[in-house]
Design a protein around this nucleic acid. Structure first.
Lengths: 256, 256
DNA sequence: AGATATTTGTTCGTATGTATT
DNA sequence: TAATACATACGAACAAATATC
């Protein structure tokens, strides 16, 4: 009852992987990934059942389970128990990918200045792109999330609001690379940067209003300028306050 | 013989993780990550042995092994057999992180224009940064990798040379975020973009020489300008040739 | 070089949990 | 409620790798 082209015991991917010194479960995971591409599997599609994988891959239950756990960790599958259950392809989501990428920067820890430099390079491009692609309804929704930025009295609440606003901005990008990169930077800055003293924020300068206005006017340059003004003020304030990047992992968020 | 503060059966991280619907091995992996932070473990340090983890975590061997495989997949540990063996902390390397991140873009597949937009936003900043930080010896090494760009007759060789050069440029950045992002973009463009026809490259315009000259002169603006000229020409050529982003995973590279 | 001890890696039988019918 | 189909967890035995003497 094996499917006509099941993942093979001797796939090229697996031989490559083993030759590179990967462990067997990792190698089996590579085989399954190749198989996903070959079969053109899409989110929602199911992998063969554990029992079938055991026979087809020529590995024991434990090893196959470890291989599936590898794919789960990569964010590629989720498993369900019960009849009709099994391992299902799921699209990797940005939150999950951000977690994995943050592991890299746990060891190659960036300075605050590095985060700010990166943000300075990307966010003006994001703002300009948004000015050209955002629908009026999206702009008004953004304006909604921008409100607490100026209104909240509590500094902690304002910090959370700024993070939420930056993430909302990033989420609006049609370019998936820009969307992920800006969202990731916002999370790093919001969750991993600690300041010993209170950091005066730049919302009082009216940049959120200027940005929204530029977006409404589809004014790419104006939007970029509004963001640049804000970034420069905020960078100066963070640096002056002696903010630093903490040594921790990004926190996992609730899924599904 | 358990260490004075071993990973606990009821760590806060594990309760949080289980509450979020994570599987037990994933939850145990979260516990271990928290423990790495608490103990301030650095690359080379060893996790408790399998047998100890089994008793301390209150899980079976298979479950503990799956948890370790999760950490291995995240690039955080490597295991060795034999006396004195076990799971050792390893710094996550860029290649590994790139592979994991590429999984995200397997599903949220960027257009060629998205890749080019991102590169246009980042590489001028990279060039400017390099002009300020690169040592003379590094510049000369770069000049060496730039040579095949203009000299190779074979288009395929030139393509490989361009990829290698861009990765070398990225590797020179002191900002780890910039280093990773530019390296990742280079790999996406080099490995995942297929062109139906030959793509004339821009090396003939002398931009590599102009860039190297600007770097030698510590001329940030000149370096950025040289890169911008090249990017714009290359983008036009790729677009004209009808290049597209393929549906595949990034290929793993040889490690250690 | 070879024997031995240590530690991870793999397998399998069994039992349990969970969702569907 | 009961039966079924599936993943999940456990434990014991054995295999393979590697350091040490």
């Amino acid at each position: 009852m094996t499917s006509p082209s099941a993942p093979s015991r001797r796939s090229p991917a697996r031989r490559r992987a083993v030759a590179r010194g990967l462990s067997r479960p990792q190698a089996i995971a590579e085989t399954l990934k190749d198989w996903i591409v070959e079969q053109d599997l899409a989110p929602g599609d199911r992998l063969p059942q554990e029992a079938q994988l055991i026979t087809v891959l020529g590995a024991s239950k434990g090893t196959v389970r470890e291989a599936l756990r590898v794919l789960e960790t990569q964010g590629l599958i989720r498993t369900r128990t019960g009849p009709g259950g099994g391992a299902f392809i799921t699209p990797v989501d940005g939150d999950h990918a951000a977690l994995l990428l943050a592991n890299l920067f746990f060891f190659e820890r960036p300075e605050l200045a590095d985060l700010l430099q990166m943000r300075r390079a990307l966010m003006p491009a994001l703002a300009a792109a948004l000015a050209q692609t955002l629908e009026p309804a999206d702009i008004e929704a953004l304006a909604g999330t921008a409100a607490p930025l100026a209104n909240s009295k509590d500094p902690e609440a304002r910090r959370a609001a700024a993070l939420a606003f930056d993430e909302a901005l990033a989420a609006g990008a049609t370019n998936p690379l820009l969307r992920f990169a800006c969202g990731f930077l916002a999370r790093m800055l919001g969750e991993l940067v600690d300041a010993p003293a209170a950091v005066p924020d730049a919302a009082g300068t009216g940049w959120p209003e200027a940005l929204i206005a530029a977006l409404r006017a589809r004014d790419a340059e104006g939007a970029a300028a509004a963001i640049e003004d804000r970034l420069d003020r905020e960078a100066a304030a963070l640096t002056a306050a002696g903010a630093v990047v903490a040594r921790r992992f990004l926190a996992a968020r609730a899924s599904r």
